[in-house]
């Protein structure tokens, strides 16, 4: 797969390393060349310094033949903008958008972006861990992806809660 990752922060760099190790063609874009240091020496993809939503930069990254794009900069709006360019202008088949603001994550999900609202996801994971609930943890990621966690309980605990 030809995958473009926009944003070489902790998430972006790790994603790039994983996909590249698995043999995918990875192009990573970041406005700050320093951030490519996070990729380490093993990364064998391409790193491009520039603004992720600049059409020229995206073309250089091969957006016209990309199979997927992940927008993971630390700016929600940049992620939304680059994702819309990828999806609506270049018809990239798989576009994923990280959005910190839960409200905007919901809104843009309705507008058809595959948004991953990390704030809500992490908050729910914490809540679930704090309350040690057996109740399931659920997130949908885009239209066709989801994550469900069930925490198994010991029988006596379940009986206690049921009482």
């Amino acid at each position: 797969m030809h995958v473009i990752i926009v944003g070489c922060g902790r998430v972006g760099s790790q994603l790039a390393q994983i996909l590249s190790t698995e043999g995918h063609n990875v192009v990573i874009i970041d406005k700050n060349a320093e951030s490519f240091k996070r990729l380490g020496t093993d990364f064998n993809g391409i790193a491009i310094t520039g603004i992720g939503f600049d059409p020229d930069i995206l073309k250089r990254a091969g957006i016209e033949r990309a199979d997927a794009l992940a927008a993971v900069t630390n700016g929600d709006n940049s992620n939304i903008m680059v994702s819309q360019i990828a999806k609506k202008i270049y018809n990239v088949p798989r576009v994923l958008t990280r959005i910190y603001d839960p409200l905007r994550a919901d809104i843009y999900k309705k507008f058809g972006l595959n948004t991953i609202g990390t704030t809500s996801i992490v908050a729910q994971i914490f809540r679930s861990a704090i309350l040690k609930e057996s109740s399931k943890l659920e997130f949908s990621i885009g239209d066709d992806l989801g994550l469900i966690e069930y925490i198994a309980q010991k029988e006596e605990e379940a009986a206690e809660q049921g009482a």
Partner: peptide
């Protein structure tokens, strides 16, 4: 001064 912000503000205003 940020184009990405201006885009999102306009989309929210119009579509939401």
């Amino acid at each position: 001064g940020d184009d990405e912000d201006n885009l999102i503000i306009c989309q929210l205003a119009r579509d939401t």
